[in-house]
Computed example of a mutant assay.
Amino acid sequence: MSNITFQKYWYLGVFGFVGFYKFQFAIDYFQGQGALWDLLNLLWFFWFLYFLPNKK
């Protein structure tokens, strides 16, 4: 357990929470009410990868 450290820019993982706000736009696309560009809002969730710790 002591060999696990956070990534250098772990605080950037907070941007992943924007994905929850933008998730409705992606749902709208699948319901036929949004544009294809609305699917790009799902990319906000990739910021959560900064929260994952690294092994030394």
Score class of each variant (00 low, 15 high):
1 M>I: 11
1 M>F: 14
2 S>Y: 13
3 N>A: 14
3 N>E: 15
3 N>V: 13
3 N>S: 14
4 I>G: 06
4 I>Q: 13
5 T>K: 11
5 T>I: 08
5 T>H: 15
5 T>P: 09
5 T>Q: 10
5 T>R: 11
5 T>L: 09
6 F>N: 15
6 F>I: 12
6 F>G: 12
7 Q>R: 01
7 Q>H: 00
7 Q>S: 00
7 Q>E: 05
7 Q>C: 00
8 K>A: 10
9 Y>P: 11
9 Y>A: 13
10 W>N: 00
11 Y>A: 13
11 Y>V: 12
12 L>Q: 01
12 L>D: 09
12 L>V: 07
13 G>Y: 02
14 V>S: 08
14 V>T: 10
15 F>W: 10
15 F>I: 03
15 F>T: 04
16 G>A: 02
16 G>R: 00
17 F>P: 01
17 F>G: 00
17 F>W: 09
18 V>E: 07
18 V>W: 11
18 V>Q: 04
18 V>F: 07
19 G>A: 00
20 F>V: 04
21 Y>H: 02
22 K>S: 13
23 F>H: 03
23 F>Q: 00
24 Q>S: 12
24 Q>Y: 13
26 A>W: 05
27 I>G: 07
27 I>A: 08
27 I>L: 11
28 D>T: 08
28 D>C: 10
28 D>P: 08
28 D>W: 02
30 F>Q: 04
30 F>V: 05
30 F>T: 04
30 F>N: 01
30 F>H: 06
31 Q>L: 09
32 G>K: 03
32 G>S: 05
33 Q>Y: 09
33 Q>H: 07
34 G>E: 04
34 G>Q: 02
35 A>Y: 15
35 A>C: 10
36 L>N: 10
36 L>H: 07
37 W>P: 10
37 W>M: 14
38 D>Y: 02
38 D>N: 03
39 L>W: 14
40 L>R: 04
40 L>D: 14
41 N>W: 00
41 N>M: 02
42 L>F: 07
42 L>Q: 03
42 L>C: 06
43 L>D: 13
43 L>M: 12
44 W>Y: 09
44 W>D: 03
44 W>L: 02
45 F>A: 01
45 F>S: 00
46 F>D: 12
46 F>S: 12
46 F>Q: 11
46 F>N: 09
47 W>D: 06
47 W>Y: 13
48 F>D: 08
49 L>M: 15
49 L>T: 15
50 Y>H: 14
50 Y>L: 07
50 Y>E: 15
51 F>E: 03
51 F>S: 02
51 F>L: 05
52 L>H: 12
52 L>A: 13
52 L>D: 11
53 P>R: 05
53 P>E: 00
54 N>E: 12
54 N>C: 08
55 K>M: 11
55 K>H: 06
55 K>W: 11
55 K>P: 01
55 K>C: 04
56 K>T: 04
